[in-house]
Amino acid sequence: MSMPATAMTDGNAAVAGMNGPSLSDADFNFLRTFVYEHCGISLGEHKRQLVQGRLVRRLRALKLRDFGAYCEVLRRDPQAELGELASAISTNVTAFFRESHHFDLLTNELLPRWIAEKKNGGRLRIWSAGCATGEEPYTLAMVLAEALEKHGSHVDAKILATDLSPQALETARKGVYPIDRLEGVSVERRRRWFLRGEGDYDQYACVHPRLRELVSILPLNLLHDWPMQGPFDAIFCRNVVIYFDKPTKQRLFQRYAGLLPEGGYLFLGHSESMYGLNDNFDLIGRTVYRKRSA
């Protein structure tokens, strides 16, 4: 919980925290600049209390006395703390089969077509960019595994899942979720693709080894260099660009276009749009874009 702004002894306005150090103007401005340059996330003044409240936990974890000391950590070694910072200030809201119409399109149209086209040695690749705690890539793995069984299992098919947050990636790698997180998964799929825990873990479920085989989980900052060269048949970047300003979105969409072949698909979140940001794509469904022919 935060309290109203008060005057600090150094003359800077600050938001005083009831249970922790306050965030001065100078430290907040440094954090805003740092986060924008390294994560592409634009923090307005209205985010000040949120930043203070969430970063207090990092101060405690690192045993730092105040936000000034935390800013010094970022100055000395930006990369070491970057993932933790990004995780703290962003909201990783996700779910299995979230925005189910995207997975219906994959199941009913795209995966059967791709598998048929690639039976003679082609590669099928999907990228979950901003995979958070793993629900999205494992949902992709479910529909992919089912399509391979139905239409041809001898296709080289893989899913790349990336995120900046160390905590989110750790959860994704474990693939263990509370039972109530499986709400969007049908009873049939729960039985097929999850292993129920026992004893102290009876309220948890672990993803099936077959899904793990299909998914590679790696750390990646979308603003930095990308080691993969593609091409990807589809890129899922849902509920990620909502944090970015217009120039950052434009650069990101252009980079995605470079990793998609003609006719490749880009999936965005329900509150996101590419309107006026890139002319390489056509909108063909609800937040579904297809790369145009040259």
Results as ranks from 00 to 15, higher is better:
77 D>N: 13
77 D>S: 10
77 D>G: 01
77 D>V: 00
77 D>M: 01
80 A>W: 05
81 E>R: 11
85 L>P: 03
85 L>A: 11
85 L>Y: 11
86 A>N: 05
86 A>V: 15
86 A>I: 14
86 A>W: 07
89 I>Q: 04
89 I>R: 03
89 I>V: 14
90 S>T: 15
90 S>K: 05
91 T>S: 14
91 T>V: 15
92 N>Y: 03
92 N>G: 04
94 T>M: 04
97 F>H: 08
100 S>M: 09
100 S>L: 11
101 H>R: 10
102 H>D: 13
103 F>G: 07
103 F>R: 08
105 L>F: 14
105 L>M: 14
107 T>A: 15
108 N>L: 13
108 N>E: 15
110 L>S: 11
111 L>G: 10
111 L>A: 10
112 P>N: 12
112 P>H: 10
112 P>R: 10
114 W>C: 06
114 W>Y: 11
115 I>F: 08
115 I>N: 10
115 I>W: 08
117 E>R: 13
118 K>R: 15
118 K>P: 02
121 G>S: 06
121 G>K: 05
123 R>K: 15
124 L>F: 11
126 I>G: 04
131 C>L: 07
132 A>R: 03
136 E>T: 09
138 Y>M: 09
143 V>I: 12
144 L>D: 06
144 L>Y: 06
147 A>C: 13
151 H>M: 07
152 G>L: 01
152 G>C: 02
153 S>A: 14
154 H>G: 12
158 K>L: 06
158 K>C: 07
159 I>Y: 09
162 T>N: 09
163 D>I: 02
165 S>Y: 04
165 S>F: 06
166 P>E: 12
169 L>A: 05
169 L>T: 02
170 E>V: 12
171 T>L: 11
171 T>K: 14
172 A>N: 04
174 K>L: 11
175 G>A: 06
175 G>E: 08
176 V>W: 02
178 P>H: 04
178 P>L: 03
179 I>T: 12
179 I>P: 00
180 D>A: 10
181 R>V: 00
184 G>K: 03
185 V>D: 04
186 S>W: 05
187 V>N: 11
188 E>V: 13
189 R>K: 13
190 R>S: 02
190 R>K: 14
191 R>C: 01
191 R>H: 09
192 R>M: 03
193 W>A: 01
193 W>C: 00
194 F>W: 03
194 F>H: 01
194 F>E: 00
195 L>I: 14
197 G>M: 00
198 E>F: 00
200 D>P: 04
200 D>Y: 06
200 D>I: 04
202 D>M: 03
203 Q>Y: 03
204 Y>S: 01
205 A>D: 03
205 A>E: 01
207 V>I: 15
